[in-house]
């Protein structure tokens, strides 16, 4: 598939990230991401960080979200390239944490309450209702999180972060524990979120190679190198350049299947 696109300004840069607790968890993690521009549409970015369970993905996730400080290095986000701090980046954790004592409507209100752009109460309510309709959540606004299925809670969690106005949203294992049918809907939803704004950027941290690659335009493999302690980026894949991005039927294409197998072997 040939598509016209250009890579513009730098919007995410991880530089010399290392994290050490009792042992070295992450070592020399470096990667960057540019704003991808396609004429005539809002084209956001979807980046996958793929790695085995226990390799340090969640720690990298927390560093990128500004929730923990790395031992060395910095993560800079946005066109201004400011060092990340908590609140700059939206986070959708693996178990879709929500405020269980609040209804879905109230949870979403919490998302919009401290949004980048201040809105009146009426505007906030209208915005929530509009987005809830997009996310197929209108019928659940009066319910409590405990009354929703895993997939529905995930949608609320994503929408809550979208409403904060953050362009960056990190998703920790978004396909984990979901059945095939729900995964297809999640993929559809993530693509929808990524194209809501030109600068919207989703970072998927997952061990699910196939689903992650299928919706990404870039992918980095987080793994350990032989005889070296700590995980690092061992492979960077530009899926657009490889002709493996933005194709709804990509899962059936031979080069894609080969790439998935190749990464499986590397992990």
């Amino acid at each position: 598939m040939t598509t016209t696109y250009t890579k513009e300004e730098l919007i995410l840069k991880a530089e010399n990230i290392s994290l050490q607790y009792d042992k070295l968890i992450l070592r020399d993690v470096n990667f960057e991401m540019h704003n991808i521009v396609r004429p005539g549409m809002h084209q956001g970015q979807v980046l996958s960080l793929i790695g085995r369970s226990g390799i340090g993905k969640t720690q990298l996730f927390k560093i990128m979200a500004g929730l923990i400080q790395p031992t060395t290095g910095t993560v800079k986000v946005g066109v201004e390239q400011q060092p990340v701090k908590a609140g700059d980046v939206g986070v959708v954790p693996q178990n879709y944490i929500l405020f269980n004592h609040r209804t879905i409507m109230q949870n979403l209100e919490q998302g919009i309450a401290n949004a980048r752009v201040k809105k009146s109460a009426k505007e906030q309510e209208e915005m929530i209702k509009e987005y809830a309709a997009h996310f197929d959540l209108t019928d659940h606004l009066k319910k409590y999180p405990m009354q929703l299925s895993g997939g529905q809670r995930q949608r609320v969690s994503i929408l809550q972060q979208v409403l904060t106005g953050n362009h960056f949203i990190l998703l920790d294992e978004p396909f984990s524990g979901l059945d095939a049918l729900v995964i297809d809907r999640v993929v559809e939803l993530l693509l929808k979120v990524s194209t809501l704004d030109e600068l919207n950027t989703l970072v998927i941290i997952s061990h699910d190679i196939e689903n992650s690659l299928a919706i990404s335009d870039s992918a980095f493999v987080l793994a350990k190198e032989k005889d070296k302690e700590g995980a690092t980026i061992t492979q960077k894949l530009d899926l657009i350049q490889m002709g493996l991005a933005w194709d709804p039927e990509i899962r059936t294409k031979k080069p894609f299947i080969e790439l998935v197998n190749q990464i499986k072997y590397m992990l």
């Binding site: 927390k62 979200a65 500004g66 929730l67 908590a86 609140g87 980046v89 939206g90 986070v91 954790p93 178990n95 944490i97 929500l98 405020f99 269980n100 004592h101 919490q110 998302g111 309450a113 401290n114 809550q160 972060q161 904060t164």
Partner: peptide, 25 residues
């Protein structure tokens, strides 16, 4: 701890987090 982290990502201050997670929650 993820509840506190959620509050941080929603740009709540430490006092707002205390109110939302510990007191009301």
């Amino acid at each position: 701890v993820q509840e506190y982290e959620l509050c941080k990502t929603l740009r709540m201050s430490n006092w707002q987090t205390l109110w939302e997670v510990v007191i009301v929650g």
